[in-house]
Each structure stands twice: as C-alpha cells, then as structure tokens.
Nucleic acid binder design. Structure first.
Lengths: 161, 161
DNA sequence: TATTGTTATACTCTATAACTATA
DNA sequence: TATAGTTATAGAGTATAACAATA
C-alpha cells in the first residue's frame, strides 16, 4: 500500500485501492509489519546462519541455562514438535547442547556452549542495529504502547475450540 | 509466555524463563500477537470457507471493483504468483470474476459477484466480532497508536540488496 | 495414566525464475 | 523491450496424531 490513492495515469477501468486501513481488520496491518520485520531480520541474521526462530531459541537458552524443551516451546509459543528441529540445528552447530536431567530422564536441560554464547552476543548486536533501523523515527512512548497492545492481544487469545 | 516467572514446583535444575520482552527483539512480540490474531481469525472465517488472505482479497475486490491483480497484489503486499491461487479459489467459488480489460488485454478487472458481496458482508460481521473479542480492554487511543507504529515499521522496510 | 521428546505428515504463506500473451 | 498474469517449485512456519521412554 505504498501508493495510497489514485494514480494519475490509470485507465478509467482500473480502480484505485482504498487507502490504508482495511475495514475491520487491524490484524492485516500487524501482518504486514511482521512480514517486514521478519524478512529484514532474517537478512540481518543471515551472516550468522540464524533465522528469527533459531535466534530466539538461542537467546532464550543463553539467558536461561537449563531450560527444558517443553519450557522453551511454551516460552516461544510454538508446538513441541516444531522445536525439535530447531534444537537439532543449534546442537549440530555446537551452539547448544542437550544435557540429560538426572532428576527426570525424559527431559533435557538445554545449555549454550561458549561458541553459542559468543555467536549470540554478536547476533544481538546486529539485531539491535536492525531494530534501530526499523524503528527509526518512532516515538519511544508510542513503541512502548504498541508493544503493550501486542501483549494484550496475545492475552486475549481465544482458547475454546 | 503465560507464566512470567518461576514455577514453585520445579526441580532445581530447571530454570525459569525470563519474563516478557526478549532482549532487543520487539519483532518477536509482534510475531506472537500476529499468530494469535491469525489463528483466531481463521477459526472465525472457517464457516465461510475463507482464510485471512482470501478474506482480505475478497474485501478489497468488493470495495474496489475493477481492481487488477497486480494492483491487488501490491495492496496486499504479496507477490503476484501467490495471488493467482487466491483469485483462482475465489473465482472457482463464484465469489468474484475476472473480466478482461478491453484497453489492455493482458490484464483482468476483478469484480465481486452478488454472492461474493453477500458472503463478504456476513464475513465482515463475524470479523468485527472477532476483533472486538481480541481487542477487548484495549484503549482505543493505544490501539490507534499501535496501528500507526505498524505502518511506520512497514514504511522503514529495508530495500537494498 | 501422564509427560518429554520425537517422528511423520500436511497445510499455509512466502519468494523466485521462467514462461505466454499482450503492449 | 517491458508488463500482466501464470506455472512450477522451494523454503519456512505451523499444527496434529501417534510413538518410545520415563514418570
């Protein structure tokens, strides 16, 4: 929706797209913003061979050593099966490791390796630059408000089948 | 991230996930909100056999009769090839039709059928209820601010490369 | 019985290259 | 040559059922 209203050189038959807000669909604006963030972030993370989802998993493991996969999946709000391949990928690259919990031999304690912590810190710096770029010109109060709104939306999740 | 901090009955080995904001990653909060919206909306649209993306295309065609596919793709911020299957689906269900433009026989003028307009209006009502539910308790000013922030993020899209 | 991690699978959304028919 | 729509395809995210090992 870069061109908000009518273009001068369109033939009569072609309509102009009504500007901005789709009626009754705030969700689509959030989708568009998210797509921009995701593709820009993935470009930023490419040199580290990380994606948004693997970066998120790595940073949570670095910041919360000993996390179980089920806890991490809940924290990331993804399904357990989908986390497995992410953990596999990080483990194969020796960025994290799966330690068996003696107290519960079904579960793993996830821990970052030194290499994982180092890569994470470098990636964090790049991501900070990415966010500065993408959030440039946005009033910090407005941004805080927006993030609070995102949390409220998440909290209003509809759980009944 | 429903449980913000430590759970009382966890064994010592298990760490608690640090609450809320992932350091330097506003994007992930937006992702989570979007996922909630998308899955709730798709559930809402299921009785109409629509999804977020087909609903969006339909409403834009209803509101902008004569739209070309390329214009619609740009308005929805998706790639032209991905729009084709969406238009196919709506056309197969006789909700819209592709009219050849006499002035440019490469292009189509997209128009909603009566059935399409009727389904659209019913879906709009359901979506309004969905958004009321999901945005319940959110200050309208805060919501407006959040939507403006989403637009600004979209406008800061990184285009080089 | 219930839970942790796993496998397999299916569906959706996104992105790109290459084609056709028109301009 | 450029553009509108199309085909084919690949990649990534998400969701569910069912299983083995363990609780």
């Amino acid at each position: 929706m870069k061109k908000p209203l009518s273009e001068p050189d369109l033939p009569m038959e072609a309509a102009s797209v009504s500007d901005g807000t789709l009626r009754s669909l705030h969700g689509y604006q959030i989708k568009r913003a998210f797509n921009v963030i995701q593709s820009d972030l993935n470009r930023t993370l490419k040199p580290f061979k990380l994606r948004m989802i693997t970066y998120t998993a790595l940073i949570l493991i670095v910041d919360n050593p000993g996390l179980r996969q089920s806890q991490l999946a809940e924290a990331m709000d993804i399904e357990r099966p989908n986390l497995v391949v992410i953990i596999d990928e990080l483990e194969r690259r020796d960025l994290i490791l799966r330690d068996r919990l003696p107290s519960d031999r079904r579960a793993y304690a996830l821990k970052a390796t030194l290499a994982g912590r180092r890569l994470c810190e470098k990636a964090v710096a790049a991501v900070q630059a990415h966010e500065e770029r993408l959030l440039k010109g946005i009033n910090p109060d407005a941004l805080r408000t927006a993030m609070k709104v995102m949390q409220l939306i998440e909290a209003n999740r509809h759980r009944e089948t």
